[in-house]
Simulated scan of single mutants.
Amino acid sequence: MSALPRLVDSHCHLDFDDFAAERGEVVARARRAGVGTMVTICTKITEFPAIRAIAEADPDIWCTVGIHPHEAASEPDTDEAALVAFAAHPKVIGIGECGLDYHYDYAPRDRQAQVFRTHARAAKQAQVPMVVHTREADEDTARLLSEESDGGRLTGVLHCFTSGRDLAMRGLDLGFYVSFSGIVTFKNAADLREIVKAVPLDRLLVETDAPYLAPVPMRGKRNEPAFVVHTAAAIAAMKGVSPEALAEVTTENFHRLFTKAAKAA
């Protein structure tokens, strides 16, 4: 039997209560499915110690530090220096997820932008990528990233991409990567699948955003990192490559962007 492709789930939330009762088994299922690396993403600075502990406990799990736009007004004010200090930890490979979310507007838009800029500046100083969340805020996201790009010093990924083609192309122009989740497998995601086809293979990542957005054929279930194989297989078909080739290239892309993350054995 040939070896399974070693995929990376570049964005999941292993600290969420959905996984508390069986986190070890969730990680074990991911490994059995061929997922060699997972990144557990911070959304609240107050929960960062628990997220970091999950990463510290497993050589194949990494983490980020940051404040989700939903939490921009409710989490403690966290300055650039604090984020840089947190990012110095060897298991912290990026800053975020941070960004703009105008769908729910849980935090005032000016506060979201302020927190987003702080994260961008911290990412540049720490020399790690940002993990960007954007929803119904394409123009402001593109403008802010362009203003903070600083001649290419700012790097990162537009995660769980569901925005328009223009933002994807502008992100690519700034040197960002684009990550796709199980949404690309949904029946009503034809426009998103066209964007997948337009993103170069060498700038593409895959993720689950677990416990959310389980891909077909797992839709309706709690998502988990093992299910990234279904998203990857669907994207491989869209790109006209084998699942093995897609796994290889997205893993290489991940390590090219997140340089602090050691490759899984």
Rank of each mutant, 00 (worst) to 15 (best):
R193T: 12
E139C: 07
G164H: 13
K197Y: 09
V199Q: 10
D101P: 12
P129N: 01
D191H: 14
L144W: 04
R170P: 03
D77F: 13
D173E: 15
Q127C: 09
G94K: 00
S149F: 04
M169K: 14
E75K: 09
G151S: 12
C63Y: 12
H68G: 03
D110A: 14
P129Y: 00
Y102V: 09
A122T: 02
V84Q: 07
L144E: 02
G156V: 08
T185W: 10
G94Q: 02
R111M: 14
D173W: 01
E71G: 02
E75N: 14
A107S: 15
T185P: 11
L154R: 07
L167I: 06
R193S: 06
E148M: 10
A73H: 13
H119F: 04
D77N: 11
R170I: 01
D105G: 07
E80Y: 01
D60R: 14
I183V: 15
Y177H: 14
H159N: 10
E136M: 10
R153E: 14
G96D: 00
S181Y: 06
R170V: 01
D110C: 09
K124E: 07
I67M: 03
H133P: 03
A82R: 14
C98I: 15
I93F: 02
I93L: 03
V128C: 04
I95H: 00
V199H: 04
G171H: 09
G99V: 10
P90V: 10
E139N: 14
P76N: 12
S146V: 05
V128S: 00
G151N: 11
R153S: 13
L192G: 13
R109V: 12
Y104E: 11
V115E: 01
G175D: 05
A189M: 08
I183Q: 08
L144P: 04
V184Y: 13
G152Y: 08
P69K: 12
Y104V: 03
D150M: 03
V92S: 00
S146W: 13
K187R: 15
D173H: 10
H103N: 14
V131F: 13
F176E: 07
L100E: 05
H68K: 04
T134P: 11
S149I: 06
E71W: 04
R135L: 10
N188H: 15
I93T: 02
R170M: 08
E194P: 04
T134R: 05
V184E: 11
V196T: 09
T118W: 00
V65Q: 00
L172A: 11
T78D: 07
H103C: 04
G175I: 07
F176H: 11
P69Y: 12
E148V: 04
T185I: 11
V199M: 07
F176G: 07
A190I: 11
V199W: 06
V132T: 04
G66P: 10
D79A: 05
T141G: 04
T141I: 09
F86K: 12
T162S: 15
H68N: 13
K187G: 11
A123M: 03
H68F: 10
L154D: 05
